[in-house]
Every structure is written in structure tokens, then in C-alpha cells.
């Protein structure tokens, strides 16, 4: 469990980082908090020629509010999100979810950008982005583009990134018309969830994003529509059939579906006022 040899690069600007990425032509990987990448390298699951440490890129830092949108730099750590007044005031869902992401030591290093770029199907952040209808700002050698969270996660550990870096996350400021809910089921505190859901309700419409259930964080439009219609919960839950639930050692797909239903039911009971 020692990583194979690699070069360590520490660019001081976004342009320099992008140039390095391009130069290594797919053989270099960006390093954010290292909480997923370093274990992957030690297991020799990832063996990049070079690591491009994003630590010094001021372009990827900072939390600002502008025109009804909170912009969160990709290198913002979970711990910073937890203590940030802007995030607390404008994105209550993040505050609800963060205590469930790992433990202090991991939250002190892990970043929002790293979590989204990794696209772990059981991670909380991707589901949060879906529920919040966030946009991911990504920058390549030629351009910066905005990708809707709905279009960003393509599969297990797969995203729409194409030789680009995530530079920031844009989340709409919460409005008085919105309510939020979050629930996840883990046997041990801080573990990846067996099933979980994040919900943003705007007036009578819902965005409900499940995580830990399939190959990626997942919304089910028919289920959201059923919630809007205020269908009986029994009916709402039938739309979970549309998710291709994961089978693994901790829970088979039947159990997962059942747990997703429990998570949904409990979330709806505990939505913010």
C-alpha cells in the first residue's frame, strides 16, 4: 500500500495548472484534499504520472454571493463550509448534510470540488447539488463553461469533465418559498450511506436527489411529480422502482430500495419550517 512513484507539481495559477494538465495529456491528476485520491494511489488503483496540487490556486477559493447565487470555490473544504456564515444563511441544506460526511479529520481536508469531481455514487455532495439545482463552473485550456448538476454526473466515478478543472460551484440562494430536508441511513456515523436523500422543496414542487442507491446520485422525475400531486406515500414509493438499485455486501438492491423509501419518508417528515 505504497503509491508508485509520481511527480508532484504545485502550480501557482489556474492557467499554469491547466497548462500542466494539458502537457501531461491525461496522465496527471489534480490533487485537492487528497482524501480519496491518496488512498486510491496507495491501493494502486490510481497511478498518475504526476499530481497537480491545486492548493495554491486562489482562483479556486472563496465564497461570495452575487445576484441570488452563492459561488463556492472548488477548493473550499468541508470544514470551511460548515463554519461559513454565508453558506449557513443561504444554503441550509449544506449545513444539514455536512455532519454526515466522514469525520473531522477528513472534513478538514476534503473539498467540495474534489467530491464532485470524484462523483462517488454514495457521496452526499453530488446529491446536494442535484437537489439545489446547482451549476458546476469548469475551466479548460480554452474556455470556462457552466454545467448543470443534472448534466454533470454521468455514472459511477464519471463526470462531464473533459480535461477541465472544477473552479467553482454556483448554488441559488435559498428563498422563503423553499424548505429543505436531508436524511441518510448509515450503520456507523460518518460512513457512506446505505441510502440517503436530499430534498429541496419550492412551493409545492420537489427536487429529491437520492444517493448511495445507484451508480450515481439520482433524481426520479415521476416521484417528484407524485410528491407535487401529494399522492399517498405508498404510491410515491412505487416510483422508486425506476432506480437501478445497487447490490453490495452491505445491502442488496431490495434492501436499498426499502431503505431509500424509509429515508424519503423520514426526510419529508423532518423538512425545515
Amino acid at each position: 500500500m505504497k503509491a508508485p512513484d509520481f511527480d508532484y507539481l504545485r502550480p501557482s495559477s489556474l492557467d499554469a495548472a491547466l497548462a500542466m494538465l494539458a502537457e501531461h495529456d491525461g496522465e496527471a491528476m489534480p490533487l485537492a484534499g487528497g482524501q480519496s485520491l491518496m488512498p486510491m494511489m496507495n491501493f494502486r488503483v490510481a497511478a498518475p504520472e504526476a499530481l497537480i496540487d491545486l492548493a495554491d490556486l486562489t482562483e479556486l477559493r472563496g465564497i461570495t454571493v452575487d445576484a441570488g447565487t452563492v459561488r463556492i470555490g472548488a477548493m473550499t473544504r468541508y470544514a470551511e463550509l460548515m463554519s461559513d456564515a454565508t453558506v449557513q444563511a443561504h444554503i441550509p441544506l449544506i449545513g444539514m448534510a455536512l455532519p454526515h460526511i466522514a469525520h473531522d479529520a477528513v472534513r478538514n481536508r476534503g473539498t467540495i470540488g474534489g467530491s464532485l469531481a470524484l462523483a462517488d455514487p454514495a457521496a452526499e455532495m453530488p446529491a446536494l447539488m442535484l437537489a439545489l439545482d446547482a451549476s458546476i463552473e469548469v475551466t479548460g485550456p480554452d474556455a470556462t463553461r457552466m454545467i448543470k448538476a443534472d448534466d454533470f454526473f454521468l455514472g459511477m466515478f464519471e463526470t462531464a469533465l473533459d480535461g477541465e478543472l472544477i473552479t467553482a460551484i454556483h448554488v441559488p440562494v435559498a428563498t422563503p418559498a423553499q424548505r429543505f430536508g436531508f436524511h441518510e441511513l448509515t450503520q456507523r456515523h460518518g460512513d457512506y450511506a446505505l441510502a440517503g436523500v436530499a430534498i429541496a422543496q419550492t412551493d409545492d414542487s420537489y427536487r429529491a436527489a437520492f444517493f448511495g442507491v445507484a451508480d450515481r446520485a439520482t433524481r426520479v422525475p415521476e416521484l417528484e411529480a407524485a410528491l407535487k400531486r401529494q399522492d399517498d406515500m405508498k404510491v410515491v414509493l412505487t416510483y422508486l422502482d425506476q432506480i437501478d438499485f445497487t447490490d453490495d455486501l452491505k445491502a442488496n438492491h431490495t434492501t436499498r430500495q426499502r431503505l431509500a423509501g424509509v429515508a424519503l419518508t423520514r426526510t419529508l417528515k423532518g423538512m425545515t419550517a
Binding site: 491501493f43 450503520q187 456507523r188 456515523h189 460518518g190 460512513d191 457512506y192 455486501l249
Partner: peptide, 16 residues
């Protein structure tokens, strides 16, 4: 052996 990591093999932890 399917779960030979500390992420997949669950030891009891303080919170529980």
C-alpha cells in the same frame, strides 16, 4: 475476500 479495507470492513466506532 470481498471487504479487505477499513471502509468496507466495519469495526465498531466511538459514536455507536
Amino acid at each position: 475476500f470481498m471487504n479487505a479495507t477499513m471502509a468496507d470492513y466495519m469495526v465498531p466506532m466511538a459514536s455507536e
